[in-house]
Design a protein around this nucleic acid. Structure first.
Length: 857
RNA sequence: GCGGGCGUGGCGGAAUUGGUAGACGCGCGGGAUUCAAAAUCCCGUUCUGGUAACAGAGUGAGAGUUCGAUUCUCUCCGCCCGCACCA
C-alpha cells in the first residue's frame, strides 16, 4: 500500500480549487452571506505561527459556512505601510516598496500552501495608490464634516531620529530605536475627532454580543466615562477676569476644598510662567518627567504656589492655586480643586505643603468631631458633615443637591467626562499614506483638489540622513497653491498606519470600485460576521475601525455603524525554551533527547536546560517556522495539530510530539479509506431496510458525531470537534466486517463519508482526496454539510448511576425512559448497592430520569 | 491601586440546566508483527492499598448551601492579562 503523499495531493487540490474558482465570492445578493475575516498580516517577510493559527481558525469557519450553503466572503490583503520597511531601507539599502512587495510575494506563496479558502481576486495592499487614494479622499471628506482637524499637540519627540514616536515606541522614556531620551514637543498635527463618538462608541458595545466580554470591558475602560461636575472658582486677584473651571466627580466634597491645582500645561500656568522664572523652571521639570511611566509612578506629589487666590463658591474663604505635577491637562479641564480628606493624592499633596485637611464625609454613626484623617483619605460613602446645607445627606444625595445649587448660582453644571482623547494621525514617516494637504503662506491649509488625488509617494528618496525623507525632498514638497497658485508646500507627514487598517474590511467588498466603497456591495457584505485576530488589537485597531465606520456613515460613504458583528480573539502560540551550558538560547531544531533521556544540543552534544514554555520569540530562539512544518508534514497536519488540544482562545504549546501525533492521524484516515475502498458499496445508494444491532451502534456514533461537531463548530470549540472525530475514527476502525459483506458496508461507507465531510474544514486536502477515493464525482468543496438523524443520535439503552448517600456504588444498563419504580427495584439488586445499604432504613430516594438513583440511608 | 481571567492525572485538556470526574490526544509501561529497526496494531495508564474483586482519597486551600458541587456562595492562596497620578 502506497503511503499518503501529502506533497503531491495538497498541491494538486490547491491547483484544482484555484482553477475552478471554488472560493470566489458570488455577487448574487439573494443568497445569505457570511463574511469571514482574519486580521490581515503585516508583510514582514515570513509567516509565523500566529498567522498559521489565526488563518487556520478563519479557514475552518469559512469552509464550514460554505458547506452550509452560505455565500462566503473570505478575502486577504496586506497591512503594507509601516516602519520596518524604512528600517530595512536603512539597513539593507533596499527601497521600502521593493522590500514590501518582495515580502508580499513570499508570504502569499506561504499562505497558499496552507490551503486557505481565500478569494484571492480581492487581494489588496494598503501601500498601493489604488487603495490609499480613497483613504486620502475620505480624509478630505472627514475634514469637510469636521471629523478631522489640525491642532498643536504634545508628542513624543526622538531628537536623534528626528521623528515623532507613538507611546508604545517609548520605553522607559527612551526611543526604542535610538535609545535617546524622548522629549515632549508641541507640534501641529492632524487629529481624528473620535471623541465626537465617545458616548456612541460606549453605548454600542452593548450590541456587540458576539464579542468577548474582555474586549468590551477593555474598550469601556478605555473610553472611561465619569460623571461629575464643572465648578467655577472666581479669582480674588483682579488680573484674571474669567473664573477657573475645574472638573470633579466629587462635587459633594466642595466644603472640604483647601486648594486648587493646575496642570503644568494649563494655559494659565503657561501665561504665568512668562513672567515668573520659578514657575517656568518647575513646569520644565514636570515636562521632563512626563514621558517615563516609571517616573510618574514613583514621583512625589509636587507643586508650586502661583500666588493666585480663588474664592470658595459657597463661602468667602480664599483658596491658594498651585501648579501641581499630578494634574493632567488632557483630562477634564486640566484643573482641580483639592479635597485632601477624601482623595489620596490631594491628601499627600496637602501633607507636603501644610494645607488643611477637613473631613466633610464621615462613616455612618460616627461623630464628625471625633472623626480624623490620618494617612488614608476616606473615599467611601458616608454622611455629609461640616457642609452647611449638605449636612446629614449621603454622598449620592449630596451630589445631586450640590449640582442643583451650582446651577442655581451659575457657579457650575453637571457634566460627563471621557478618558478617550482624539486620535493623532500624523506621522513624520516616509512609508505611509501621504496627507493630501498643501500649506500656503497666503491661504493657510488647503486641500489637494480631488482631481489631483492620489498624492503618491516619490520613489527617489534618500535614507542616509535621519528624519523624514519627505521633508528633505524639495522637488516633491514644493507645489503651487491650488487656490492662489503661489509657491506652497505639501504636508510632509503621512498617516498613522492604523488609518489604513480602519476600513480595509469595507474595501474588500468592492476592491476595484472607483469610490472608497460601493454602497450596494458594502451593505450586502457588511458587517463582518466573524472577525478573528489577536487580543493585542483589543483597543486601538478595533476602536479606530468602529470610529471609521461612523465617520464614513456621517460623510455619506456607507450605512453601517459596527464593522464587526462577531469577534474572536485567539491565543498565542508558545514553545518551550532551551538554554545551553553557556547560557545561550538554543533553537528547538537543535535539540535532541539522547538514549539516557538527557536533553542535549544536536550540534555539540552538550547538555541543555529546558526552560519555561513561553511565547515564540526571536530573542529566545524558541520559534518554529510554519513553512518548515508544512514542508515536512503537510498543511493538513499543521492545521490539525493547531486545532487539537487547546481551545482556540487560550495559549497553546507547540510540541514536536503533538505534530507527529497529528501526522499519524492524517495517515491513519488515509489508510482507513484506502484499505476498504474496494469492499464498499457504490456511493449514493439508498440505505438498507433493516440494520443489525452492530450496524445501528456505528450509525449512532456517526450521527452523534455530526450533531456534536456541528455544535462545536458553532461555538469555536474546535478542540472538542477534534476529540469527537478521533472517537468516530476509532469506532470505524473497530467496526469489523467481512470483506464481501456489501450490505454491512453501507453503514461503514456512511461513517467514513461523515468523517470526511466533518474533517473537511480542518484538513481540506485529505478530505477532498478521500472523497474522491470513495468514488465521488462532485468535489467535496461543493458538497453540503451533513445533517444528523436526531432519532439515531439518542441512545435507547442508558447507563444509570446508582448512588448510596451520594456516593457511586454501581451502574445499571436500562432502557431509556424507564419509570422510577422499576429502576429502583433493579438498582437495589445490584450487588454493591444492596451490600452497602444492608439493613439500614431508606430515608429518601432521589431519582433523575435516565441519569441516576440516589438512596439516602 | 483599579478592572478582568484562570487554577482538574506526568502533560495539553473533556465534563448540557448542579447528577457516573479524567472523554480525546501526547507521554509512559507491556505485548503482537519483524532477522532487526521504522511504521503499524492490541492492552494498560488519577493517586494509595490489594494478584484481583474491591476499598479509601481526589478538580489550588478552607468553609457553606444540597440527597449530590469541577459547576453555586463566601474567605484565602497562586499565576496570567489589561489600565494606571483620570480628579
Amino acid at each position: 500500500m502506497s503511503r499518503y503523499n501529502f506533497r503531491e495531493i495538497e498541491s494538486e487540490w490547491q491547483g484544482i480549487w484555484n482553477d475552478r474558482g471554488s472560493f470566489v465570492a458570488s455577487e448574487d445578493f439573494k443568497q445569505s452571506k457570511y463574511y469571514v475575516l482574519e486580521m490581515f498580516p503585516y508583510p514582514s517577510g515570513r509567516i509565523h505561527m500566529g498567522h498559521l493559527r489565526c488563518y487556520t481558525l478563519g479557514d475552518v469557519v469559512a469552509r464550514y459556512k460554505r458547506a452550509q450553503g452560505y455565500n462566503v466572503l473570505h478575502p486577504m490583503g496586506w497591512d503594507a505601510f509601516g516602519l520596518p520597511a524604512e528600517n530595512a531601507a536603512m539597513e539593507k539599502k533596499v527601497h521600502p516598496a521593493e522590500w514590501t512587495y518582495d515580502n508580499i510575494s513570499t508570504m502569499r506563496v506561504q499562505l497558499q500552501a496552507m490551503g486557505l479558502s481565500i478569494d484571492w481576486k480581492r487581494e489588496i495592499a494598503t501601500c498601493d495608490p489604488e487603495y490609499y487614494q480613497h483613504e486620502q479622499a475620505m480624509f478630505l471628506d472627514f475634514m469637510d464634516h469636521d471629523l478631522v482637524y489640525r491642532k498643536k499637540g504634545w508628542v513624543n519627540w526622538d531628537p536623534v531620529d528626528q521623528t515623532v514616536l507613538a507611546n508604545e515606541q517609548v520605553i522607559d522614556g527612551k526611543g526604542w530605536r535610538s535609545g535617546a531620551v524622548i522629549e515632549r514637543r508641541q507640534l501641529s498635527q492632524w487629529f481624528c475627532r473620535i471623541t465626537n463618538f465617545s458616548h456612541e462608541l460606549l453605548l454600542s458595545l452593548e450590541d456587540l454580543q458576539r464579542w468577548p466580554n474582555k474586549v468590551r470591558i477593555m474598550q469601556e475602560n478605555w473610553i472611561g466615562l465619569s460623571e461629575g461636575a464643572y465648578i467655577d472658582f472666581k479669582f480674588s486677584n483682579d488680573k484674571l477676569k474669567s473664573p477657573l473651571r475645574v472638573f470633579t466627580t466629587r462635587p459633594d466634597t466642595i466644603f472640604g476644598a483647601s486648594f486648587c491645582a493646575l496642570a503644568p500645561d494649563h494655559p494659565i500656568s503657561e501665561q504665568l510662567s512668562n513672567t515668573n522664572s520659578d514657575l517656568k523652571a518647575f513646569i520644565e521639570e514636570c515636562r521632563k518627567l512626563g514621558t517615563s511611566e516609571e517616573a510618574i509612578q514613583t514621583a512625589e506629589k509636587k507643586g508650586i504656589d502661583t500666588g493666585l487666590r480663588v474664592y470658595h463658591p459657597f463661602s468667602d474663604e480664599e483658596l491658594p492655586v498651585y501648579i501641581a505635577n499630578f494634574v493632567l491637562m488632557g483630562y477634564g479641564t486640566g484643573a482641580i480643586f483639592g479635597c485632601p480628606a477624601h482623595d489620596q493624592r490631594d491628601l499627600e499633596f496637602a501633607r507636603a505643603y501644610g494645607l488643611p485637611v477637613r473631613p466633610v464625609v464621615v462613616p455612618q454613626n460616627t461623630n464628625p468631631k471625633e472623626f480624623c484623617i490620618q494617612e488614608e483619605a476616606f473615599v467611601e460613602d458616608g454622611i455629609l458633615a461640616n457642609s452647611e446645607f449638605l449636612n446629614g445627606l449621603n454622598v449620592p444625595e449630596a451630589k445631586k443637591t450640590i449640582i442643583q445649587k451650582l446651577i442655581g448660582s451659575e457657579n457650575g453644571e453637571s457634566t460627563i467626562n471621557y478618558r478617550l482623547r482624539d486620535w493623532l494621525i500624523s506621522r513624520q514617516r516616509y512609508w505611509g499614506c501621504p496627507i493630501p494637504i498643501i500649506h500656503c503662506n497666503n491661504c493657510g491649509i488647503v486641500q489637494v483638489p480631488r482631481d489631483d488625488l492620489p498624492v503618491t509617494l516619490p520613489t527617489d528618496i534618500d535614507f542616509t540622513a535621519p528624519g523624514n525623507p519627505l521633508e528633505r525632498h524639495l522637488e516633491w514638497k514644493s507645489v503651487p497653491c491650488p487656490s492662489c497658485e503661489q509657491p506652497a508646500e505639501r504636508d510632509t507627514d503621512t498617516f498613522d498606519t492604523f488609518m489604513d487598517s480602519s476600513w480595509y474590511f469595507a474595501r474588500f467588498c468592492s476592491p476595484s470600485s472607483s469610490n472608497p466603497v460601493d454602497a450596494k456591495q458594502a451593505e450586502y457584505w457588511l458587517p463582518v460576521d466573524q472577525y478573528i485576530g489577536g487580543i493585542e488589537h483589543a483597543i486601538l485597531h478595533l476602536l479606530y475601525s468602529r470610529f471609521f465606520m461612523r465617520a464614513m456613515l456621517k460623510s455619506g460613504h456607507i450605512n453601517i455603524k459596527e464593522p464587526f458583528q462577531g469577534l474572536f480573539t485567539q491565543g498565542m502560540v508558545n514553545h518551550a525554551t532551551y538554554k545551553d551550558v553557556n547560557g545561550d538560547w538554543v533553537e528547538p531544531q537543535n535539540i535532541l533527547v539522547d538514549e539516557g533521556g538527557k536533553v542535549v544540543r544536536a550540534d555539540t552534544g552538550s547538555s541543555v536546560e529546558v526552560g519555561r514554555v513561553e511565547k515564540m520569540s526571536k530573542s529566545k530562539k524558541n520559534t518554529v517556522d510554519p513553512t518548515d512544518v508544512i514542508e515536512s508534514y503537510g498543511a493538513d497536519t499543521a492545521r490539525w495539530f493547531i486545532l487539537s488540544d487547546s481551545p482556540p482562545d487560550r495559549d497553546m504549546e507547540w510540541t514536536n510530539s503533538g505534530v507527529q501525533g497529528a501526522f499519524r492521524f492524517i495517515n491513519r484516515v488515509a489508510r482507513l479509506v484506502s484499505d476498504c475502498q474496494s469492499s464498499l458499496p457504490k456511493p449514493n445508494l439508498p440505505p438498507n431496510e433493516k440494520f443489525s444491532e452492530e450496524e445501528n451502534k456505528l450509525r449512532q456514533i456517526t450521527h452523534k458525531t455530526i450533531a456534536g461537531v456541528t455544535e462545536d463548530y458553532e461555538r469555536f470549540h474546535f478542540n472538542r470537534s477534534v476529540a469527537r472525530l478521533y472517537e468516530l475514527t476509532n469506532a470505524i476502525s473497530a467496526y469489523e466486517i467481512e470483506e464481501s459483506d456489501v450490505k454491512h458496508s453501507w453503514v461503514k461507507r456512511e461513517a467514513l463519508e461523515t468523517l470526511i465531510l466533518l474533517l473537511n474544514p480542518m484538513t481540506p486536502h485529505l478530505a477532498e482526496e478521500m472523497w474522491k477515493q470513495l468514488g465521488h464525482k462532485v468535489l467535496l468543496v461543493d458538497t453540503r454539510w451533513p445533517t444528523a438523524d436526531r432519532s439515531l443520535a439518542i441512545d435507547d439503552v442508558i447507563t444509570i448511576a446508582i448512588q448510596v448517600n451520594g456516593k457511586l456504588r454501581g451502574k445499571l444498563d436500562i432502557k431509556a425512559g424507564t419509570k422510577e419504580i422499576k429502576v429502583q427495584e433493579a438498582a437495589r439488586d445490584v450487588t454493591n448497592v444492596s451490600s452497602t445499604i444492608s439493613d439500614r432504613p431508606i430515608k429518601k430516594v432521589v431519582f433523575v430520569k435516565d441519569k441516576l438513583v440516589n438512596f439516602v440511608v
